[in-house]
Amino acid sequence: MKPYIVEEYDDGILLFTINRPEKRNAVNYEIMDGLEHALNLANDEKVKVFAITGAGDQAFCSGGDLSAFHSLRTEDEAFEMLSRMSDLLVKLFYLQKPTIALLNGTAVGGGCELASACDFRIARKNVRAGFIQGTLAITTGWGGGTFVTEKLLPANAMKMLMEASLYDAEQLKDLGFVQMITDGDLLESSKHFLDKMLLLEGSVLGAYKMMFINKWEKACLKERVNKEVRRCSELWEDEAHHKQVAKFLGKK
Rank of each mutant, 00 (worst) to 15 (best):
K251P: 00
L198G: 04
K243W: 02
D11G: 11
A123K: 10
G130Y: 03
E8K: 14
R121N: 15
T146H: 05
Y9A: 09
G206Y: 02
F50D: 07
A169Q: 05
M32H: 09
I181P: 06
F147P: 02
T140Q: 09
A59M: 06
N226Q: 15
L194T: 05
G105T: 09
C61S: 15
M81I: 11
A107L: 10
S67K: 11
G54W: 02
V204Q: 08
R121T: 12
E188F: 05
Y208K: 10
F93E: 11
L15K: 05
K151A: 08
L235P: 03
A68E: 14
E75I: 00
K97Q: 08
W216Y: 15
G130I: 03
E217F: 06
L152I: 00
M1T: 13
T139C: 03
K251M: 10
K243S: 10
T17D: 01
E45M: 07
E75T: 13
L199Y: 06
T99Q: 09
V204I: 14
M158K: 15
D183S: 15
A55W: 00
L166Y: 04
R121H: 06
R230I: 01
L153N: 04
R20Q: 13
S203Q: 11
D76K: 13
G12D: 08
L152S: 01
R128L: 00
G64A: 14
E228F: 04
A115P: 07
Y167V: 03
S203P: 00
A78Y: 08
N43Y: 01
G54V: 07
V127K: 02
L41R: 15
S62C: 07
T17V: 13
P21R: 02
N226D: 15
L153T: 00
H37P: 00
G111R: 08
H70S: 13
A137S: 15
P98Y: 02
I138W: 05
G134Y: 06
K46I: 13
E75L: 04
S233R: 09
C220L: 08
T182M: 03
I18H: 02
T135S: 11
L102H: 05
F131W: 09
P154W: 06
P98F: 03
A51R: 09
I213K: 04
K159T: 04
D10T: 12
P154N: 04
W236V: 02
F193S: 07
E228Q: 07
H242T: 02
S116L: 08
K46E: 15
L166S: 02
E150T: 03
P98L: 07
E223H: 05
F248Q: 08
A115L: 09
L14C: 13
D57Y: 05
K159R: 14
H37A: 07
E80R: 13
K48P: 11
K252C: 00
L161D: 00
S86H: 11
V27F: 09
M210W: 01
S190P: 08
D174C: 01
E188D: 13
L39R: 08
Y29C: 01
H192E: 15
Y29P: 01
E217Q: 13
Q133I: 01
G143H: 10
N28K: 02
G184R: 14
E30M: 03
F16D: 08
M32E: 14
Y208D: 09
K97Y: 06
N40V: 11
D44V: 00
K251Q: 09
I31S: 04
F131T: 09
E80V: 12
A129M: 13
L15F: 07
T146A: 10
K252V: 03
